[in-house]
Design a protein around this nucleic acid. Structure first.
Lengths: 194, 194
DNA sequence: GGACGATGTTAATCGTCATTAACATCGTCA
DNA sequence: TGACGATGTTAATGACGATTAACATCGTCC
């Protein structure tokens, strides 16, 4: 063999994260079913079967990825929504979501599209967190616009996410900060006019 | 055999359209690679191989689907953008895109996600039409907001599409007309504030 | 009333893919 | 220094899926 089987460098602590990052990129670009375990392995310099040393299977990779994303979004969302001034709370939520989307376009994409491919067991918890995150936004917005009925408020929040998550497709054109400002302005305006 | 092979009813003129519609639904819900030819066939009451009587292959189904969508969007986009008053032109574009998205959520989803799975040959033409459609919006918006630099304008249009195309995920909550009004209001506000 | 084209069906074919088995290598540490 | 656990690798294994082959059926039209 041209290269020995084992690796000398003990990059163990990063390995799982490395795999998750590569998988996110591939799942985002080609879809869960469009990226194979072999593709993911190759992306981190391994063969396909090697991934089974770190995850119990392909679905487990996706599940852990989505669970992590929804936890991060929800946890920080809770914090930001706690701001007493609803106007400031909304800005804080916007800043948070925009930063996350711009810094992790692949994660946002996968989070938005691939829930159905997560095994039942973990799907419920992820969905719960996603819903809870949305509800934080709804609560803040309702304090800001008490007249708006709840279902319309929720629909507006979903539409707003659509706007913010469009990042992966167009972020290339503008530098990060210009894009962040643009998205913030547009989203704020859309929500407060709804 | 329990049922005869040939069909008596000459539903020939609809068959292709029927297949395209079923495929759109499945591709939207599960992704191009997540839906098999067998699934599509079953959805229209046929077996998988039967589809080859109507399309040269799975990719051809997707290609025809995306080509049709991008042509329809672009053709009508051209018409609406021709309105001399930029303010009215924008409203006309919004009405058109919103109606299309609300009436064809599956098509919008596939159009947005699956271009990479179209064979090169047809991909270029589809991309050209998609770009041209965006440019119609950009042109209108630039007349409306001359101060906004072109790249920011284009980014704003992309973000606006993200908002409008979020329809598939949340449209269930509101009736069609309320949703249309909501999206129109939000999008208009987002674009003119950008 | 029989030949033909359009449409379908079921039975190969062939490749890809997830997953598992069997077999190294390396670092550690008793 | 030698056994062991952690990580990898290369061969199975077993499904599944796209596509094609071989074989009906039906309606039409001469």
């Amino acid at each position: 063999m041209t290269s020995p089987a084992g690796r000398t460098t003990p990059e163990a602590p990063t390995r799982r994260a490395e795999i998750l990052a590569a998988a996110a990129e591939l799942f985002a670009r080609r879809g869960f079913h469009g990226a194979s375990i072999g593709d993911v392995g190759r992306a981190v310099g391994l063969t396909g079967p090697a991934l089974y040393r770190h995850f119990s299977g392909k679905e487990a990779v996706l599940a852990e990825m989505l669970l992590d994303i929804s936890q991060r979004l929800h946890a920080e969302g809770l914090r930001r929504a706690a701001e007493p001034e609803p106007d400031r709370a909304l800005d804080a939520l916007l800043h948070w979501h925009i930063a996350f989307a711009l810094d992790n376009p692949a994660l946002i994409t996968v989070h938005e599209r691939e829930l159905d491919n997560v095994p039942e067991a973990q799907r419920h918890e992820i969905r719960r967190l996603q819903r809870a995150y949305v509800e934080e936004w709804v609560r803040v917005l309702r304090r800001l616009r008490p007249g708006l009925p709840e279902d319309r408020t929720r629909a507006a929040v979903h539409a707003c996410f659509g706007l913010l998550n469009s990042t992966p497709y167009s972020a290339a054109a503008l530098d990060r900060d210009s894009m962040a400002v643009l998205l913030h302005t547009m989203a704020r305006s859309a929500l407060t006019t709804a």
